[in-house]
Amino acid sequence: MADWIEIGRIEDIPRQGARTVRTGEGDIAVFRTAQDKIHALKDECPHKGGPLSQGIVHGDRVTCPMHDWQIQLATGEAVAPDEGCARVYRVRVKEGRIFLMV
């Protein structure tokens, strides 16, 4: 049964930053942009698996800390000319609370 589950509040994540959510299948990176948009991606760069949660968040992208690929937060797509896609999770924010779909 699909269900929204709360993982924290928006202010738990610094602006232009990220936190991780632990799961049995690896970490999920939850990002907060300068405009307070929340996105969730698998914490694995499509390049060589770098932890995206540790990158620098700018605009609607994150730059991977390992080799500087840029990943689009909304789609998980690498910015051209790099090619690849990080897994995207469904996430929503309600009254400052963040939910993931499990």
Binding site: I5, V21, G24
Partner: peptide
């Protein structure tokens, strides 16, 4: 971490 989940989302 922000949270640990038992069920993967």
């Amino acid at each position: 971490p922000l949270k640990s989940l038992a069920v993967p989302p």
